[in-house]
Amino acid sequence: MTTKRMAIIATKGTLDMAYPPFILASTAAALGYEVQVFFTFYGLQLLKKDLSDVKISPLGNPAMPMPVPMPVLVQMLPGMESMATMMMKDKLKKKGVASLEELRALCQEADVKFIACQMTVDLFDFENSDFIDGIEFGGAATFMEFAGDTDICLFV
């Protein structure tokens, strides 16, 4: 049996959208897949050593379940984003969902390859030292080389 392969492009840097790439990558690796995740634009935040910029906001996110209905004008107030992030992290923890740090570490343990988009690293003036160890830096062609021969290819 040949090894199955999965490629994911992670483009979002919010707390909710950070989960699908890490959950799918770690699970696929557990199922024996060879996995690469290419992080570009805001997705790069998910490779930072410090994940404190990864937040969630009710603003512009009308489907987000809220404990009490909250008018958009209130969602805009200072501190709302931090509060929503704190509440979401608390909920994730209570429900036994792994933290992003934990899932990311599990991916790396399982040999999931993380690639940071060099173009966006330069665009946002990030330093290579901002990122966790064990990742690679590359461009679209690097991604295509692997993605061109995969069983599953996702854009998140």
């Binding site: 699970t27 557990a30 429900k95 036994g96 969902v97 792994a98 399982a110």
Partner: peptide, 13 residues
């Protein structure tokens, strides 16, 4: 017990 997807699978593996 108490773990959510995908942790039961990852721990099983």
């Amino acid at each position: 017990r108490g773990l959510s997807c995908p942790l039961p699978i990852l721990r099983t593996k």
